[in-house]
Design a protein around this nucleic acid. Structure first.
Lengths: 221, 221
DNA sequence: CGCAGTCGAACGATCGTTCGGTCGGCTGGC
DNA sequence: GCCAGCCGACCGAACGATCGTTCGACTGCG
């Protein structure tokens, strides 16, 4: 567990600008611009997205855009923080820290699907990082911490005999994360209800696709 | 099923340059440069990779590099063709066109893992496309065709009662592809033998993680 | 000598970012 | 209630850097 904050530069405005008493024209707050940026980043890819693209998507010129945001990388960092806060928040939930390893794992997976859907653009950004800048490497490190927590849970559940004996729990953990994370590649809100999505992912991960009914269903969950 | 070739420009050299009788210093053939490019593309991301990066990885200067390759997009296209040829080759195999839908699906999934490992850099590139250029959109279209073939097979197997009754076969197909495709995010040759990887993916996808033994295993496969 | 291979230099384009200045709604003193 | 002036929002133009690509010249085998 390393820093919970990126290598923040001094003078950073608070990410959630309060703007209690504002002057001038109706303006954009920072968080809404982060949302716009995350969307465009995902469409074109971070490196292929120009500040001109972002400002145009926000409806203002490039120079006006710089009046609201520090720069391109700061937008990325804000979006990644939002994704990571959502994911790590799961690990602090009561159901993620009590009960059998399998029950905790199953809760985390299902909640992970919900957070992924709720923060779809931000998590998508997180899962596509390449580590070219310091900010990206920081976020990648945090993401590895999250994956390690899941891998440890899979290992514990496997050691407790709660999982089918497999060749390698580490591989199982990777595949499990792969199922959940692959949602960002196709899921879009509206088509499939979130609760159905959670049920499908849970079933795929823990019961598989085959038709034969298991002898005893552990619990309806 | 649309074109099997990208909107190739005239004068394209054959992708596998024979170079039977070569003159001058020991040189690079095109396919090895494509391999180098695919590797660097995956490390830094396509857009973040400069031609300087590629030529340096090949050990020559940028201008020398242009003596061997047409340009950046041509390198991408060649790598994507290699990935797509490998994947679509699976669909033509006898075991992919005969037998029950489930048997065919299972064969394709297992072979897909093998091709993904054999062509890891090229398939990785394919799975990270954003569709910014015409070449990328062409490759994305071809990839959608492949995914549609798998989705059709999942639907057939589900209709035949070979799969557990689920909420939505289309979602199952997405999740299935998600498991396989997520391999490019972590798998590196050497650690886990390919046959073990195939077995793990097969088990995860069709039987799930849970411990309770199914009443009857259909076949050892 | 021919020519494939290599290279340095430079092209126009676009990148992220900065700067100086305009506009207009809100505020404080009267 | 009024208005001068402040200041946040906005913009056009330009910065140096880097991008993908081209060109002409040099090099050393066959």
């Amino acid at each position: 567990m390393t820093n919970a904050r990126p290598p923040a530069r001094e003078g950073d405005p608070p990410t959630g600008t309060p703007l209690g008493t504002r002057r001038g024209r109706p303006a954009y707050d920072t968080s809404s611009l982060v949302e716009v940026a995350a969307r465009v980043f995902n469409e074109r890819g971070y490196d292929a997205t120009s500040m001109e693209d972002l400002s145009a998507a926000a409806g203002i010129t490039k120079s006006s855009f710089y009046h609201h945001v520090r720069g391109k990388e700061a937008l990325l960092r804000a979006a990644l923080e939002r994704a990571l806060d959502g994911l790590f928040g799961i690990l602090d939930e009561p159901a993620a820290t009590t009960g059998s390893p399998l029950a905790r794992l199953r809760h985390i997976v299902r909640r992970q699907v919900e957070v992924l859907v709720a923060e779809l653009p931000h998590v998508t950004l997180l899962l596509r990082l390449r580590g070219n800048t310091e900010t990206e490497r920081w976020a990648l490190g945090r993401r590895r911490e999250f994956d390690a927590a899941i891998a440890a849970l899979v290992r514990d559940a496997s050691a407790a005999g709660e999982l089918r004996a497999g060749l390698d729990p580490a591989v199982d953990a990777r595949l499990l994360s792969g199922i959940v994370n692959s949602l960002v590649e196709w899921y879009r809100p509206g088509r499939v209800p979130v609760e159905d999505l959670v049920a499908e992912v849970d079933r795929m991960a823990f019961e598989g696709l085959l038709a034969q009914a298991p002898a005893t269903r552990r619990r309806p969950f």
